[in-house]
Design a binder for these strands. Sequence first.
DNA 1: TCCGTATCCTGACACTGTCAAGATAAGAGG
DNA 2: CCTCTTATCTTGACAGTGTCAGGATACGGA
Lengths: 208, 208
Amino acid sequence: MTQDTPHLRPKPEAAPDTRPYHHGDLRAALLVAAEDELADRGMEGFSLRSVAKRAGVSHAAPAHHFGDAKGLLTALAAEGFRQFLAAQAAREAVAAPDPASQLVAAGLGYIDFALSRPTLFRLLWQSERPDFSNPDLGQAARAAYSHLVDQVTEAGGGNTADEAAVWAIAHGLADLLAAGRMMSVGSLPAEARDAMLVTIIRRALPAP
Amino acid sequence: MTQDTPHLRPKPEAAPDTRPYHHGDLRAALLVAAEDELADRGMEGFSLRSVAKRAGVSHAAPAHHFGDAKGLLTALAAEGFRQFLAAQAAREAVAAPDPASQLVAAGLGYIDFALSRPTLFRLLWQSERPDFSNPDLGQAARAAYSHLVDQVTEAGGGNTADEAAVWAIAHGLADLLAAGRMMSVGSLPAEARDAMLVTIIRRALPAP
DNA sequence: TCCGTATCCTGACACTGTCAAGATAAGAGG
DNA sequence: CCTCTTATCTTGACAGTGTCAGGATACGGA
C-alpha cells in the first residue's frame, strides 16, 4: 500500500498553509514512509532521516515513537508479517477447499507477497535489523509459521520433512523470484507463471 | 565534525613501525578483511573504513584497488561465487556417480556454503550492493547457474519446472537454515540433518 | 483556566563513504 | 648511480547518517 505523497495532509479544517506542530498520527505515517523508503532505496539504502523527511517531520521525531531505527524496522516487520499472512489468505479464499489446494494457494500467496514487496520480504526473512525478541514481532512471525504447519498437517503430512519441503520450495521460489534471479519462471506472463508455480509446488506436497 | 579533536596518536619514532608503506598484496588482504567484516558485523553493519582498519591501512586505501565500497563487494561476490561452486564440487566428489546422486550432492554443497558463510551467501543472492553488470561477477554467477542446469539435464529433467523445482528447494533450505529460521531441521546433529536434507531434496528431482 | 506531559524541534557528536591533494616507494631508462 | 614516471598509500576535508541532550509546543484533563 504505497501511498502517493502529493502534498501536505492537513486535517480538513486545520490551517491550510502551516503544518501543525503535532502531526496527529505520526506513528502510522512513519510506518508508511518507512515502507516507501525500503521500496525506493532498498534494504541497504534505508535511512531514518530520509524516512522522517518523507513524513514531513524533523530527523529526531521518529525516536519518540520507535526509539531508534531498529525499533521502527521491528514494528514494520511485525506489520509485514501480518500482511504476509493476509496475502496467503487472499489466495486461499479463491482456491478449492481441499487441503492440498489450500496448501498450494498459501504457497502462491507467499510468492505474491515477495514479488509485490520484495524489500519488505527481505526485512522479514533475511535482515538482521528487526529485533526478533520483540514480543509483537515474535508473535507475528510465529503466526506465519503456525499457519504453515497447520496446513501441512491437514494436507496429510505429519513429519518434519513434509513441513520443510513445502516451506523450502515456496520460500526458495519467492526469494529467487523477488531477487530477479529465476528469470526462466519470472519472465513468464502472470497466468502461465502461476500455472508453472502450481506444478512446482505440488512436487513438494506429502504423498497421498 | 571534529576539527579540534586532540590527536593523541604518538607516531613512535623509537618504536619500530615495521609496517611498510606499501603493503605488498593489499588487494587480497582487503578481500579477506572484507569477508571477516561481513562475518563479524553482518551485511548491514559492513563498513569500508573498518575493513581498511582490519587490513592495517588507511581509510582511503581501498579506493585505489576497488574504486568504492560497491567495487570491493563486487569483487568479493565474484570470489564468493567461485567458492560457492567449489562447495558443491566438494560434495559431488564424495557422492555416488549417478546423475541423481550428483544433483542431490550439489544441493547439499549449496546448503553447506550457506551454513558456513551465511553473510557471504546473502551477498551473492540477496544484496543489492554488488554490481552484477560487472563482467567478472556476471561470469561467476552464470557459471553457478549453468552448473545447475547441466546437472538437472543429466538427471533426466529437461524442462523449466524441473530446473526451478530443484533450484528452489535447495535455495529455500539454504536460505532458511542460514537465517536460523528452520530450526526443526537446523537443530538436528549434522549427520541426521544431512539425511533429512537428502530426503527433502529428492522430492524435487525429476520423476524417472 | 492552568498545568503536566506527550509530542516534536534544534543542535551536537561520533560515525560513515568519497573526493582531492600530498607523501612515499618501486621500477624503468639513461 | 641517478633521475623520472607511475603506482601505491596517507592525510584532510565534506556531506550524510544514527543517536543523544535539551528546549519548544500544544493536547488533555484538573
